[in-house]
């Protein structure tokens, strides 16, 4: 059976199926599957299948390259071949539904979690956890890079009273089971990092003048900044730190000027 009586809808469904899944489609009245030759012309140099193959090969190569661009550190961590295998499977499972390629990798970390190779085993390997965290972190960076924000608020100085300090408009806290931020920074600086061992880590991502700033911080700093992110003042966040970490008030007061200086230098704070 040929494709002469294919409607426009059927023709587009057939072609998309051939590109995305390579599944032959039957027309609406059933019968034999149509062949490429039934629908596509041959030319002087190429037969119909080779004409269609240009689109088929380009589809996966194009989106794979896009994934590698969006997850460059993960590509390095996994190695190009393994990344490609995961990316191809991901694109098959979650083909793009958006008009923009910026969101192509939105579900990639979730997909890696769903398909981790030790999923059925009682004893889990550790490296998939790192890869899943790294994928989530890299995608988050691409979102933060483009998030809307008031970019030109007054930056705090060391003279700004504590009561007038507020977090920068683009300010995100991350907590990981692995040193993900450090790994990403090392990769970005072409230091060819080794796969890290598990180690709880904390970081801040800010954006000033439309460029991202990545900073590794300590657990107590994360806890303190998290309280400020939840709307608490410097004073209340310090009190929570004292109660939450069993710190002495004198110790917190002693360390605070140094923290304040570092946080302001790193661009964490604006002045009200």
């Amino acid at each position: 059976m040929g494709g002469d009586d294919f409607s426009l809808v059927e023709l587009q469904n057939w072609m998309q199926g051939m590109l995305v899944k390579y599944v032959p489609v039957t027309n609406s009245r059933g019968g034999e599957a149509v062949t490429v030759e039934d629908l596509v012309n041959s030319s002087k140099r190429l037969n119909a299948i080779r004409h269609l193959d240009i689109y088929r090969h380009s589809y996966i190569a194009r989106l794979r390259a896009c994934m590698q661009n969006q997850f460059s550190a993960l590509t390095y961590a996994l190695g190009a071949d393994l990344f490609e295998a995961f990316a191809d499977q991901f694109l098959d499972t979650y083909p793009s539904e958006s008009y923009t390629l910026n969101t192509l990798g939105e579900k990639f970390a979730t997909f890696l979690e769903e398909t981790r190779p030790d999923k059925e085993l009682n004893e889990k390997e550790t490296w998939p956890d790192f890869m899943i965290e790294l994928a989530g972190f890299e995608y988050a960076l691409s979102v933060i890079f483009d998030e809307p924000a008031e970019e030109h608020r007054p930056i705090a100085t060391e003279e700004t009273p504590d009561g007038n300090l507020r977090l920068a408009p683009v300010f995100h806290l991350f907590k990981h089971q692995y040193p993900v931020c450090k790994y990403y920074l090392d990769f970005s600086q072409q230091q060819e990092p080794e796969l890290p061992f598990p180690e709880e880590s904390y970081c801040v991502v800010t954006r000033r003048n439309y460029k991202l700033g990545l900073f590794t911080i300590r657990a107590a700093q994360y806890y303190f900044l998290l309280r400020m992110q939840q709307g608490k003042s410097v004073e209340l966040a310090k009190q929570d730190l004292i109660s939450g970490f069993k710190f002495k008030a004198d110790d917190v007061d002693a360390i605070w000027p140094q923290w304040k200086k570092n946080f302001i230098t790193s661009g964490f704070f604006d002045a009200v």
């Binding site: 240009i54 689109y55 090969h57 380009s58 190569a61 194009r62 390259a65 896009c66 661009n69 969006q70 923009t100 390629l101 910026n102 192509l104 960076l141 691409s142 890079f145 483009d146 920074l185 970005s188 000033r208 439309y210 460029k211 991202l212 700033g213 990545l214």
Partner: peptide, 16 residues
């Protein structure tokens, strides 16, 4: 070669 009419659609994240 690969047909890639939308090669330029992914932002490159800038880091300080």
């Amino acid at each position: 070669a690969v047909s890639n009419p939308v090669d330029f659609l992914v932002n490159n994240v800038l880091i300080n």
